[in-house]
Design a protein around this nucleic acid. Structure first.
Lengths: 199, 199
DNA sequence: AACAAGCGCTAACAATCGTTAGTTTTGGCA
DNA sequence: TGCCAAAACTAACGATTGTTAGCGCTTGTT
C-alpha cells in the first residue's frame, strides 16, 4: 500500500510536471492572461476539467513556475562565498548561472520575467522577496568591488540595472540560437558586460 | 462646414489620444490581455460602449501605441548619417535617443515591449518590420565600427543583444527614479555599455 | 426655432473564461 | 476475473469578454 501510494504519487507528480511544462511553453508564447485552461488542456490532448485532477488552479501553475526559477537564482547567488574570489570571478559565476538557467529552464524563465505580475497575494510577495534578496546580494558584490577598486567608479544602480536586464532576458536570444553558439555566448558575454565594447 | 469638421476632428482626436494614453498606462500595469474595455472606460469615467465613439477596437488601440513608438525609433536611427561621426558618437546618440523616448513615452514604450505579441496580422507584420529595420541599422553601425577597429573583436550578435535589451527596458528603471537621477543615467549608462565596469 | 453632430448612456449579444459536480473509462494488482 | 483508484470525460455554473444597436442629452450652427 505504501509502495502503491508512492508509485501513484510519482505518476501524479510527473503528470503535474507535464502540465506545468506545457503551461510554461504556452505562457511564454502568449502570456499568462491570454492562455486559457482549454488551450492548455488541448496541448496535452485532454479536456480542461481533467487538469484539475492534477493541479488546483491556474494561479497555482503560475506560482509553481515563477517561484521555482526565482528560488534557483537566489540559491545560487547565496552560495557565492564572500572572500575567496575576486569581484570579476564572482560576476563571471553569476553570468554563467544565468546562462545555465536560461538553457535549462528557458520557458519557465521567460514566464517568470513576463508573468510574475499576475501572481496574487502571498505568491507575489514571495516572488518580490526572492527578487529583492537576489538584487541586494548582487548590489553587495558590486559595492565591495568598488570599495576594493576592482570596479570602476560608475553609478552602482546603473550597473545593477544594465547587468540584470541583460542577464534576465537572455532567453530571448537563446531561443534563436543553436547549442554551438552557446559557447560563443559563454566566451563573449562576460567580456561585453565586464569590459565593454570600445577598443 | 469644413471648419466645423476640422474642429470636431480635433476634439475627437484629443479624446482618442486620452483613451490611448490611459490604455498605455493600464497595459503597462497589467498587460494587454488582462485589461478589459470596461477597466479602461472606468479609468476615463465613462462606460465601455462609449469608447467606441472614438476608437474602433481594442486591437486598434494597441496597434496605435506600439507602432507609434516603433516608428519613432526607426526614424531616429535612420537619421544618423553614415560618415561624419565616430562609432562611439553614433552609439552615444542611440543611447541618448532611448533615454529620451523612455522619458517622453514611458507607458507606450513598456506597452510596445510587452504587448506587441498581441498584435494581429498586418499590425504585427508592420511592427516586426520596423524592429528588424532598427536592429539591422544598429548591426550595420557596429559592423562598420569593428571593421574600422573602433569596436573590440567580440561577437556582433552578443553586442546587439546586450545593448538593445538594456536600452529597451530602461523604462523599468526610469519609473523608480526622479528627474535628478536622469542626469546620472545620461552620464553613466554610455560609460557602462561602451567601456564596461572593470577597472 | 430647427437641425445636426458629438458623445454619453442602457441593454443586450454571442463567445469565452476558470472552475465544480458527477460519471465513465482505464490500467494495474489481488 | 474482479476490484479500486487514477484520470479521463460530459455538462453545466456564473462571471466576464469585446462589441453592436439604439436612444437621449448637449452644444453650436443655420
Amino acid at each position: 500500500m505504501s509502495y502503491l501510494a508512492f508509485s501513484n504519487n510519482i505518476m501524479n507528480q510527473n503528470r503535474q510536471q507535464e502540465i506545468i511544462n506545457a503551461a510554461a511553453l504556452l505562457f511564454q508564447e502568449k502570456g499568462f492572461s491570454a492562455v486559457s485552461m482549454r488551450d492548455l488542456a488541448a496541448h496535452l490532448n485532454i479536456k480542461a476539467a481533467s487538469l484539475y485532477n492534477h493541479i488546483s488552479s491556474k494561479q497555482e501553475i503560475l506560482a509553481s513556475i515563477v517561484l521555482q526559477v526565482a528560488e534557483e537564482f537566489t540559491t545560487h547567488i547565496n552560495a557565492i562565498s564572500p572572500d575567496d574570489l575576486t569581484t570579476q570571478q564572482k560576476l563571471e559565476a553569476i553570468i554563467q548561472n544565468h546562462i545555465d538557467i536560461t538553457i535549462r529552464l528557458t520557458n519557465k524563465l521567460a514566464c517568470m520575467n513576463n508573468d510574475w505580475i499576475h501572481l496574487e497575494n502571498e505568491n507575489k510577495e514571495k516572488y518580490r522577496h526572492l527578487r529583492n534578496t537576489y538584487e541586494d546580494k548582487f548590489r553587495a558584490i558590486l559595492k565591495e568591488g568598488k570599495e576594493k577598486g576592482e570596479v570602476k567608479d560608475v553609478d552602482l544602480e546603473i550597473i545593477v540595472f544594465s547587468f540584470l536586464t541583460t542577464l534576465r532576458t537572455l532567453y530571448l536570444w537563446y531561443t534563436k540560437k543553436t547549442s554551438v553558439e552557446v559557447e560563443i555566448l559563454q566566451r563573449d558575454l562576460p567580456k561585453t558586460l565586464l569590459n565593454g565594447i570600445i577598443s
